[in-house]
């Protein structure tokens, strides 16, 4: 019963700032700026590889990131190839990233390609460093032959020569797979779009330069929108993010105070 009141409070704490935004500014952090500068620094025509390694559940956190980075890359006239170790990620890309490209006047097969998904995880990645075409079964997400997509001529395998940057939007282990099988052996720079939950797991690798940059969940997307100078849906969620965090902190403090004030005997003995 007590829990339901907490749930109501949480929903209120989110709805109020969504309806009445305060618009507190989001200050970009180093981890996000690094990605922005990386993409700014690439010569036009470079090939950027976006890995959409997340399921529908992570859309609220990772899709705003992917959209901002994808748009940024195309605006800078980079070529983008999309791939996914998740069967859902590539579909999400087709429904939401492709339209962005078209609205920017980009052409499929020339400016961007969606390679689709293959089962096998890390083995797929390893295979792509040896022979991307064979690993992909020679086709893209819609079954179009790769030989019919002009852009693919310059991407026979994943190596330093063909790929300038890999950005892995991931909700789990795929970052480690990219690191172990692709970027460490080949030396392609790797940046991550990460769910907030995994952000800390990945920080040690940011320090060592194994990940060049990490976007931290929805907040990372909001920072990227700020850098692009286009506040969007991630930015609009930041006030609600503030209030909900504040509520959690209050709940922790309140819970501890109640505990100290004699709730102790209600609690289970802990060892």
């Amino acid at each position: 019963m007590k829990n339901r009141w907490i749930y109501v409070l949480l929903v209120v704490a989110i709805i109020v700032p969504l309806a009445r935004p305060i618009g507190l500014p989001v200050n970009p952090t180093r981890e996000t700026e690094d990605l922005f500068e990386l993409i700014e620094g690439l010569p036009a025509g470079s090939l950027v590889y976006l890995a959409m390694d997340f399921d529908a559940g992570a859309i609220p956190e990772l899709l705003p990131q992917a959209e901002a980075v994808f748009a940024h890359a195309l605006l800078r006239d980079l070529k983008v190839v999309i791939h996914g170790l998740s069967d859902q990620g590539v579909l999400i890309a087709r429904d939401s990233l492709h339209p962005i490209a078209w609205s920017l006047g980009k052409e499929y097969g020339v400016d961007f390609v969606n390679l689709g998904f293959k089962p096998g995880g890390g083995i797929v990645l390893r295979g792509m460093t040896a022979d991307l075409w064979q690993t992909m079964g020679g086709v893209d997400i819609d079954g179009t032959r790769l030989s019919k997509l002009p852009m693919m001529e310059r991407l026979k395998r994943l190596d330093r020569k063909s790929v300038a940057l890999i950005v892995d939007f991931n909700s789990g282990g795929s970052a480690a797979a990219y690191r172990n099988y692709v970027t460490e052996p080949t030396g392609i720079p790797l940046a991550l779009g990460s769910c907030a939950v995994n952000f800390n797991v990945q920080m040690p690798f940011y320090r060592s330069g194994q990940y060049k940059a990490i976007l931290n969940g929805l907040r990372g997307a909001a920072e990227y929108e700020r850098l692009l100078n286009r506040p969007g849906k991630a930015t609009s969620a930041m006030d609600a993010q503030s209030t909900s965090h504040a509520l959690i902190i209050v709940l922790i403090i309140f819970g501890n105070v109640l505990h100290l004030l004699g709730g102790r005997r209600l609690g289970r003995e802990k060892r």
């Binding site: 907490i6 749930y7 559940g57 859309i59 909900s244 922790i252 819970g255 501890n256 609690g267």
Partner: peptide, 23 residues
């Protein structure tokens, strides 16, 4: 369905914050 299932965890984290995180 998938997104909402994941978002349910926000409720759990809220109630757990109140109950479990004791100093």
């Amino acid at each position: 369905l998938d997104s909402t299932m994941y978002s349910l965890l926000a409720f759990y984290i809220a109630s757990a914050s109140f109950r479990a995180f004791r100093v």
